[in-house]
Each structure stands twice: as C-alpha cells, then as structure tokens.
Design a binder for these strands. Structure first.
Length: 449
RNA sequence: GGUCCGGUGGCAGAGUGGUGAUGCAGCGGACUGCAAAUCCGCGAAUGUGGGUUCGAUUCCCGCCCGGACCUCCA
C-alpha cells in the first residue's frame, strides 16, 4: 500500500502519516456544542473525518476515535435563558437530534463520545498543573492562561502574541496581564451551571475541555486532531498552549487537519443572511447519501458551495453507481484502488473519478469492478443500501401493488400496439414520481423524487 | 490594517515541469414504438503581467479578483 499523505496545518504541507503507535491510530475531532441542530458546516466536518476514520480502519490494525460533546457553554446558557427550557433538557434533546442526524448522514459513531460536564475534574487537574508551572494565574475570580509564558504561542494560526495585541479589536478585560490571555475557568452565578473548584464555584472556559478529554482518552500525545478551519484560532491554538504547557515536551497532536468552510447557493452561510442551513433541512430535501456525497465531492480543505444544483448532480451520480451495483455485485473486493487515491490527503474528488471508472466497467459487464465499487462505497460511507431500496424503497407510499398493476396494463396495451394508452399510463405514473424503464427483461420502475 | 488560502471548460471539480482527469449540462449517433437507461463520438478551460526553464497550468515575483481568521465577553 502506498503512503498515506495528510496536509498538516502545523507545517502547511502534506506529510507522510505514521502513527506514533503502529498498532493503534489515535484521533480527536471537535464535536458539537449542543444548543441547536447541527448545520451542514458541522455535517461536512463530521463526514470528512468519518471518511478518514474509515480509511484509517482499512489501513491500520486499530483506530481510536474520540469526538467530544460540548454540553457546558455560554451559548447553551443563553438558549436556556431566552427559551425557558432547562439546560439539561436542551442538551439531551440536541444530543439525540445530533445522533439521529449523524446516522442519517452515514457517519460511524466514534469509539467514544465524551461529554464536557463528565470531565470537570480532568479540567481542574489540568488547570492546576498550569497554575503550578506558572502558565496560568487567578484574577478577579477567573483563571487565565498566560500566553506570554508559552513562546511557541501562535505556531498553528501563524499569529504572534504581539500581532494579536496590535490587532485586538475587542475591549480587553482589565484583569488580564496580556490581551491574548484566555479564560480557563470563570466564576458562575448561582443560576448558572457551576462546579466547586480551588478557585470557587465556577465553570470551564471554552478550550480546556478538549485538552482535558483528549488527555484522558488519548494521552499527552496523539496522532490526529481535526476540526473546521474556523477553529484554528483561537480554539486549537489555545488547546495547544494548554496541553503543551501542562505536559512539557509532549507536543500534543502530531497532525492537525482542518476542513474548509461552506457557502450556500453561492453565499456565505450565516445566520444574518438567513441562509443558515441545518443538516435536517438538507435531509428533508434529499436522501442522506445525496447530502453526504455533496459534502465529499469537494476536497475537504477547499471551500464548498452547498447548492440545490449540487444536490441534483449528486443524486444522478448515485443513480449511476447504484445502476452499476444493480447488475454486478457478487465478488470479494478490497477497495484498494479507491483507498490508494483517498490516501493522497483524503482526495475524495479524485477517488470519485475512479469510482466512475469502476461503474463504467461494471456496466460493461466486469463483475469484479462492481464489487470494487461497493468496497469503494464502504470507504466513502456511500452505497450502503441495495439498489432496489435506492431506486424503489422509502419515500412514503405503499402503492407498489398499484404500480405493478399499471405496468401490467401497459404491457397489454403495448402488446396490442396501443401506444397512446401505454404512454398515458406511463405519464400518469411519472406525475406521481414513478419512472418506467422498458428493458430486455421487461419493464422496471424507480422513484424520481 | 495584519495573517493566511484560493483563482482550471457552461457548471461542478482533480491531477500534473512536457500533447489538461472525472461528473453534470450541451450537440451528433446507436438502441427503443416513443421514452428512460446504456453505449459510441464531438465541441469546450488553467485570472493577469513578468521571471526561471529546451518547455509552466504546475516553480518564483508583481497586479487584479474572491474567501477565511484576527480571541477572551457580556
């Protein structure tokens, strides 16, 4: 097998990937903050790293994939305040929604999905280490990380502490020693979630949870840390600072991967523009595999335009793949051809081109190609259903008997060369989203919507 | 303003220092009663100006255009 190359945000270039422990790849991905439904930007990150997870599982004996759930956050508090719904209710519901959405998107569950609120003691332990080593200080009830104590601060984002100071456009809290210092722990009022700590009752800052949970489950050093590009600064930069200072010499994550942002129908996705598309919205418009393919048709580091046009194209691509599977899928296959292309920095568009080549071959009668196509689909998390289910399953109505009756009537009409009647029947079905296809073995049907 | 990323056919979207993948759409043809699907074929692109090179879409520089990020916190 050829090398696995991954673009490391730390070096801004592709590197040959070698896990620290050849027996087990350790990966951490930033999961959702559970105050609202996942949007398609979240979905992209989840789908991209799910493909990586599948690739790694195909290449290495074991993969341990950790994806956290942030269930303590001021956005959650704010949602509870404005809606009146209790925090525990908001987070429980949103987590259930998230799991349902991920399943619909075809994402494998991570090996463990730790919740921030279950790891407060780990966070406190980490903060105490930072206090003891002089990287953190208490001020006005807060505990802050002192960026000046970490010379490498900025190694990921490319910002220097000085630049940040110069460019600061937000009012800096007066108790900070350096404008770049960030909160590790902050005080909570009685109506806010809080935990007892050496610094009084309080709650964690945004970044410390990921340092704590990755430490807990993956150790001081691990292989891959992934997330959206918008997390590079400040979130990941601060994670690095916390973890590297708490565990000198550890280096924290060895490879950082960041997926690009989304546009919707050509516009930047934002709540103010009113085009903030939830994954659930997308799933209402198209099957999960179609949404997933749209997210994987573009290389993960590039900006992606999520459009209705793209949904249509993706659906037609999947139609073709399923047609190829319909004819031939009965041989053992490895998926190696597809995996080889994916191993060039998760080159899903390139691998998709290879999938089309396999589909061509399968449609031409190469049974092995059809099986390779299926195996490639397993790497993509696509082609996970039977062609029959894809073309004729789901989408509501149980009018299969009526459809078959109509087909039988049309067959009689055609045999009598009454094509006007035959076409009338076909048009009536087409109006209900049923497309008839006359083949050598008779007439088959599929849903077009 | 600072830092960084990107500009490929009508659209989407890869690779590559030496005749520019793949998909969708379009056009012509085969097949079909007609379609659908499938197959065959066709046209169509590397933002711009320089530089390096025998040769640049690929490497370097300028320019233009587009995009991302520039924290804490209420």
């Amino acid at each position: 097998m050829s090398d696995l190359l991954l673009h490391n945000s730390l070096s801004r270039g592709k590197e040959r990937f070698e896990p620290a422990d050849p027996g087990c790849v350790r990966m951490y991905v930033c999961g959702p903050t559970v105050y609202d439904l996942a949007h398609i930007g979240n979905a992209r990150a989840m789908a991209v790293f799910d493909v990586l997870y599948r690739m790694l599982r195909a290449r290495f004996p074991r993969v341990f994939y950790v994806r956290n759930i942030t269930d303590v956050d001021d956005k959650i508090n704010e949602r509870a305040r404005t809606s009146g719904e209790p925090i525990a209710s908001i987070t429980a519901r949103t987590i259930a929604d998230f799991h349902a959405d991920m399943a619909a998107l075809g994402c494998l569950p991570p090996d463990i999905e730790p919740r921030a609120t279950a790891h407060i003691p780990d966070m406190i332990a980490l903060i105490e280490r930072l206090m003891a080593s002089g990287h953190a200080y208490a001020a006005s009830g807060h505990v802050l990380f002192a960026v000046g104590s970490f010379p490498a601060y900025g190694m990921l984002s490319g910002y220097s502490a000085e630049e940040l100071q110069a460019g600061a456009r937000v009012e800096v809290a007066p108790f900070k020693r350096h404008p770049g210092d960030f909160v590790l722990w902050k005080p909570s009022t009685p109506d806010m979630p809080g935990w007892d700590s050496p610094w009084g009752r309080g709650r964690p800052g945004w970044h410390i949870e990921c340092s704590a949970m990755s430490w807990r489950y993956l150790g001081e050093t691990f292989d891959i840390h992934g997330g959206g590009r918008d997390l590079i600064f400040p979130h990941h930069e601060n994670e690095i600072a916390q973890s590297c200072c708490a565990f000198p010499g550890s280096g924290f994550a060895r490879v950082w991967l960041h997926n690009g942002m989304l546009r919707v129908n050509g516009e930047k996705m934002s709540k103010s523009l009113g085009n903030f598309l939830t994954l659930r919205d997308a799933l209402a418009r198209a099957p999960g595999e179609v949404v997933r393919l749209v997210l994987l048709r573009t290389h993960y580091r590039a900006e992606l335009d999520f459009s209705d046009l793209a949904l249509g194209e993706a659906r037609r691509e999947l139609d073709r793949f399923y047609r190829a599977l319909e004819r031939h899928d009965d041989v053992q296959a490895s998926g190696d051809a597809i995996l080889r292309t994916l191993c060039d920095d998760i080159n899903t568009p390139g691998a998709l081109a290879a999938m089309h080549g396999l589909a061509d071959a399968a449609l031409a009668g190469d049974r092995r190609a059809g099986s390779e196509l299926r195996a490639g689909g397993d790497l993509f998390g696509l082609l996970q259903q039977s062609p029959a289910a894809w073309f004729r399953g789901a989408s509501g109505s149980d009018d299969v008997g009526a459809i078959n009756a109509a087909i039988a009537e049309r067959r009689q009409a055609r045999e009598a060369r009454n094509f006007a009647r035959a076409d009338q029947i076909r048009a009536a079905l087409a109006g209900r989203g049923i497309l008839l296809e006359d083949g050598p073995a008779g007439t088959t049907w599929r849903r077009t919507s």
